Amino acid sequence: MTVALAPQAADLKIDWAAMPTYNTIMAVAAGVGLLGLVLLARDLVRRPAEVDTDGWALNFGVLGGILTATGLHMTLTWPLAAGGFPFDNIIFGETSLGFGVLLLAAALYLWRRGAALAATPDPLQVLVRVARPLSIFAGFLGGALVAIAVAGIKYQLFAAPPQEPISGEFAEWPLVEAIFMSGLLGLVGVGAIAFPFALAAAAKGNRGSLAAKVTGGSWVITGTAFALFGVMNYFTHIGLIVNTM
């Protein structure tokens, strides 16, 4: 996830005091959060007696706190960067805020009801019933991600300037990173859209539905990709700052 700057001349200078960016930690937290949801569901199916709900509550609480704090700040600060890229507020801020609050809700539930949940004969079925109302919001948030993906390709967003290491190698072809980032966001959205249908099928006893496979598969792929991309961007963003100070 890169700073949304169009390719500039070799002498590009940026006033970083007026250009805050922290979508590095947001990408890592979002990626790990997606993976965590899938892993929790998998463990509840395969080995429910071994699930430590306190551990998962801590996990989702930490990740949700990061995404809610950074997403809320980015959502309410227009534009976050004085350089003027307000679409970043929508693309990264609002989506991170929505996902962060959902993770905090999961953390709160597991913290307060985790012991009682673990004592039930079928904890996954209980979670399915609890999560179904919130899955509606998750589904529409997925639709928003698909819309962002379409906008990313249409307007060729996400292009890095040539001063940014690695990503900047594609500065002459802005559509490359636009397709990559839009593809990741769109695939997360597809999984989120399928999520309420997966829960509806699971509530009827069909835990291996097509919707469940779409949600799980898409979130494993994109969660891993986002986390690794965020890790890489700790290098690329530092390099961009050093090269444009």
Rank of each mutant, 00 (worst) to 15 (best):
F92T: 00
T236M: 12
V242K: 15
E177S: 09
G65N: 02
F92A: 10
L210A: 15
D52Q: 12
G239Y: 00
P196Y: 03
L199R: 02
V45K: 12
I136S: 10
F235Q: 11
G189V: 07
F197M: 11
M232N: 12
L110A: 11
N23S: 14
G168Q: 05
F235N: 03
D43F: 00
D15S: 07
L124G: 00
E177I: 11
G217K: 09
G142K: 05
P123E: 09
L175N: 03
A27N: 08
L199G: 00
L110K: 01
A201M: 01
T215L: 03
K213Y: 01
F180S: 11
K154G: 05
F170N: 10
G191M: 07
L80A: 13
G230S: 04
L37R: 00
I153H: 07
S182N: 05
F195R: 02
P162G: 14
A138H: 04
P20F: 08
G189E: 05
G71D: 04
G139I: 08
A194P: 03
Y109D: 13
L124Q: 09
L103V: 04
E169K: 13
G61C: 06
A81R: 12
A57H: 06
A116D: 15
F170Y: 15
F170S: 14
F197C: 01
A115I: 07
F170L: 14
A49E: 15
L12Y: 09
V38M: 09
N243K: 03
A30E: 08
A149W: 04
F158A: 11
T24L: 12
A29K: 05
L228T: 08
W111I: 01
G55R: 14
A118I: 02
A81T: 08
L199N: 02
L175E: 14
L34P: 01
L102P: 00
G142N: 12
L117H: 04
L134F: 13
T236R: 14
D15R: 02
V242P: 07
R113N: 07
Q156H: 09
L103G: 02
S209D: 09
W111N: 12
G223I: 06
T53R: 10
Q156C: 06
Y22M: 09
F85A: 15
G65D: 11
A116K: 12
L44Y: 08
K213Q: 15
W78F: 10
K154T: 14
P174W: 00
G93L: 06
G84R: 03
F60W: 05
K213E: 10
V231N: 06
V101H: 05
F137D: 04
G216C: 06
L124F: 04
A198N: 08
T21Y: 12
G191V: 10
T77V: 04
L35V: 13
M74W: 10
